[in-house]
Every structure is written in C-alpha cells, then in structure tokens.
Simulated assay, not measured.
Amino acid sequence: MTRMKRSPDHEDEHIDLATHTDPDRNRLTPLLRLPPEPALAVVTALAAVVREAHVREREFPTPPGTLKRAQEFEEGDVYMAEAPFEGFFADRYLMDFYDVRERGVCSRMHLHTGLRFVRMMTGPATTIRVSSLVPITVLDAHWPGTPLLTVVDALPDAPVPRERHTVVVPENSWVDMQIPRGVSHQFNAVGPHAVIDSVHPEESIETLREGMSGYRMMAQTIFLAEQRSTADPCTEP
C-alpha cells in the first residue's frame, strides 16, 4: 500500500472533499442494549480510566521522545491502554467522548491511515451520531426493539455538495463498527455518557508505512474539512 499523508506528522492535515472517494464502506453491528444502571456503570468506569490518565499526564508530563499514552482527539480525550510491541502490531485506545452540546462544535469528517475496530458504548440520555460520506452497512444482530435510526442529509459547511449518511446509536447500547483504511467517518456524542473501546490492528505497520515519528491519533488522521462546524448539524434528531 502507498502512504496517504503528505506530511507524516501533521496533526491537522486535510484533503479535498470534492475529489475524495471512499474505497469501501463502514460496517456497523448492533450488539446489545442494557438497563440504564449497568450501562451507566460501565461507561462511567471506562471514562474514569481515561480521565485519571489525563490527570497523571498534567501532573507528570510525558518526556519528549517517549510514548504519550494520554492524548486528545476531536471527539474526546483518549488513552492508549495497550501499546504495540515487537511482534505485535496492534494497540488499543479508550476514548471519553465530549458532549457536542457543551463544546458547541461538531467533530469533522475524517479518515485514518490504517483500519480501525471500535466498540461504542452509551449510557442514559446519550446517543452517538455515526456518519460517513457513503451508506453505512448495518449488519444483522440479536438487537431488541426497532432498527437503528438512519438519516441522510447534506454534509454541513461543505464547499461542494456531499451527502452525509448517519446511523444513530441509542442510549444504553453497545455497537461495534469496522472501519476500513481510508473510509470516511464522523462520531458525535450527544449527552454526557459515551465511550469508545478502539483496536488499531496495524498501528506499527501504518506508522512505518507513512513515515510517522510516533503513535499519535491526530497524526494518523486526515480530515475532510479545514474547520469544524457548529454543534447544530450533529445534535438532531
């Protein structure tokens, strides 16, 4: 595979939305719904791991040239729970989502230089809007109740007209998503209780392929917009 980044360590690189074509589709599998109390307990405990890591980072900053495990991304704070090592190329991140209503901005549509597997978990009064430039394939699963809500609208603030395909993850839910390399996606949590458990199965490989100097979520990302839009387009329905 060829490299995707123009500048390997650039943490805010973006590409032309007008010419981008997704090479594949994201695949989303609804797993289960929980009662509000256990859903809140799981999400709160995982978010606490991330928050404690960021407290430690502020108190004892990672020395330059050393792997920084507490990082920030547009959707939330992240913590590298397990790092790659020689002979094992994958790693695992936890993300504590920001509530887009509190921040007043949406995260941008983007793609990654390597494939991702993410498990999204929500608690009470919280949903996650999962979007892409192409339809998201929702796979069959043992899912109680009505199918997940899907919405098609215009990508906000785009310099050229592009459709946005969204699946809404309901409250108190676990949903898995497979994200192929180079496929657009966008996550926005509406509410205070949302986390992601994310596995990057080729992080060492993609870092070498792109010529990056380290493992950083932002550097492994290419955005499809220069700036973020206001929160309104990613809070409804």
Rank of each mutant, 00 (worst) to 15 (best):
M218H: 08
G214P: 00
E236R: 13
L208E: 06
I179L: 12
V169W: 02
P233L: 09
F223N: 04
H20P: 06
A194Q: 03
T19N: 07
M218C: 07
R216M: 07
R56G: 04
C234R: 11
P144C: 10
L111M: 13
I128A: 02
P233N: 06
R164L: 15
E59P: 00
M4S: 10
K68L: 11
V168A: 06
E163G: 15
A47D: 12
A194S: 11
P124S: 09
F60A: 14
R3E: 00
H185M: 02
G182L: 11
P159S: 07
G114P: 02
P84G: 00
M80W: 07
R216Q: 09
V160G: 03
S173F: 02
V195L: 03
L28R: 04
G182M: 09
P144Y: 09
H185L: 01
D96C: 02
R25Y: 13
R92E: 10
R103K: 14
H185R: 06
G104V: 07
W174I: 12
L133R: 01
H110C: 01
V152W: 12
A194P: 00
V55F: 11
R69L: 11
Q178E: 15
V175C: 07
G211D: 00
Q186P: 00
D24W: 07
E171M: 09
L115R: 11
W143S: 09
T62M: 05
D232T: 14
G104Y: 02
R103P: 07
H110Q: 05
L224W: 03
V199K: 01
G104P: 06
E74A: 11
E52S: 13
E74C: 06
D96T: 00
Y79T: 08
F60R: 14
V55C: 08
Q71V: 13
A53K: 03
M95W: 05
M217P: 03
V49Q: 09
V100M: 07
E226V: 03
V152F: 10
S184L: 08
V152N: 13
E13N: 04
E74I: 10
E74L: 08
V105K: 00
T207D: 00
E102S: 09
T2D: 10
A158R: 03
P192A: 15
T66V: 15
D157Y: 07
T19E: 13
A125S: 11
G211N: 01
R209F: 01
A225M: 07
M80E: 15
T113M: 01
E59A: 14
T166H: 05
E102I: 12
Q220W: 01
R58F: 05
T166G: 05
E37I: 08
K5V: 02
D153Y: 04
H110V: 01
M217C: 03
H20G: 09
D157H: 12
P38E: 09
Y93D: 09
I196T: 14
R162K: 13
R216D: 11
R27W: 09
D153R: 14
D22Q: 05
D9Q: 00
E11A: 13
T235W: 03
A83R: 08
R25W: 06
D96Q: 02
A41S: 08
T2C: 11
P233K: 05
G76L: 05
L133A: 01
T122Q: 05
S107K: 01
F73D: 12
